[in-house]
């Protein structure tokens, strides 16, 4: 996708004209087959009524006098996601860097980073939510214990996802060949400078797809924050469902999540494709030393 100029006149870059025709036909046939099976199933009437009732789809999207609007509630998911994502990007990088700091003096810091990632990758998010959301206010610690449940929810999301994302960063950093650091050091860059200007720019670019993958997961997991009391999209759907005894509201919530996720997924694809093209074009990625494109003056073009 993305580069329409190139694909014009010769079909999809990946498939070619004939292949596009075949793939389109097979896709249509596949979905017709699924539609027929679903429509002819003995329980299709009742399932259609409970999950895809037009009146309920519309009504739950907009809300009723007693049930909140799923669309409005979804804004809370987006808000939590945006705030959490910004904090996670920074915090996880710090953790990954701390984990990589050499020298015996820094052992305790490395140990803390390791223990942190081990624990928070292992503990289910819902448990962290309960411990932060019900535990911290229970402590009676003044300011710390009187924040809103949304704040506690975001803290829990940040704690868990930073552990994942730190590992993603670390994998990226480890994937940059030792010779890059060695070359940077031989040019007179300090350890920190070579990390900042040579290793990180390459590492981060490599891990953007898995990073975005984690963020799609984060986006969906914002729904779990509802256990602490606030009404986000999935909870709004649940309220509507319980009131009307109909699941259509869940379908509405699902569609809203998908609507946000698809552009993110396509954006990831786009970044991967662009990266591949750049590498195929022969130029090394910005930041890399020891190649034509890698002169130090164009180094700081980091997260490309």
């Amino acid at each position: 996708m993305g580069d329409t100029k190139r694909s014009a006149g010769r079909g999809s870059r990946l498939l070619g004209n004939r292949a596009v025709l075949v793939s389109t036909t097979s896709t249509i046939l596949f979905f017709i087959a699924v539609a027929v099976v679903v429509a002819l199933a003995p329980g299709s009437d009742i399932v259609g009524e409970r999950f895809l009732n037009w009146v309920h789809l519309k009504q739950s999207l907009l809300g009723t006098a007693t049930a909140p609007s799923v669309a409005e509630a979804f804004l809370l998911n987006v808000r939590m996601f945006m705030i959490a994502e910004a904090i996670i990007l920074v915090l996880a990088l710090v953790i990954a860097l701390v984990r990589g700091v050499p020298g015996p003096v820094f052992f305790p810091f490395r140990a803390v980073a390791v223990v942190y990632t081990d624990i928070f990758r292992g503990v289910p998010l819902i448990l962290v939510l309960y411990m932060i959301g019900f535990g911290v206010p229970g402590l009676g610690l003044g300011y710390v214990s009187t924040r809103s449940d949304i704040t506690y929810g975001i803290i829990a999301l940040v704690l868990v996802y930073s552990a994942y994302v730190a590992e993603v960063y670390r994998a990226g950093i480890d994937s940059v060949h030792q010779s890059q650091t060695a070359a940077a050091r031989s040019l007179g860059l300090s350890r920190w400078q070579s990390m900042r200007f040579v290793v990180l720019p390459q590492a981060v670019r490599r891990v953007i797809p898995p990073l975005l993958n984690d963020f799609i997961g984060l986006q969906k997991d914002t729904a779990l924050v509802s256990v602490l009391g606030s009404i986000e999209a999935a909870r709004a759907a649940q309220i509507y469902g319980a009131e009307q005894f109909n699941y259509s509201a869940y379908v509405v919530a699902a569609l809203l999540f998908v609507l946000v996720t698809i552009p993110l997924a396509r954006f990831t694809d786009h970044l991967i494709a662009r990266d591949r093209r750049r590498r195929e074009a022969g130029g090394a990625a910005p930041g890399a030393l020891g190649t034509a494109a890698g002169a130090p003056h164009d180094v700081p073009g980091t997260i490309g």
Partner: peptide, 18 residues
């Protein structure tokens, strides 16, 4: 388009039972 067909198929089937 196929998804739409699917949705319509299920939607129509359900109308009379409501």
């Amino acid at each position: 388009a196929a998804l739409l067909v699917l949705a319509v198929a299920c939607g129509e089937a359900s109308d009379d039972s409501a």
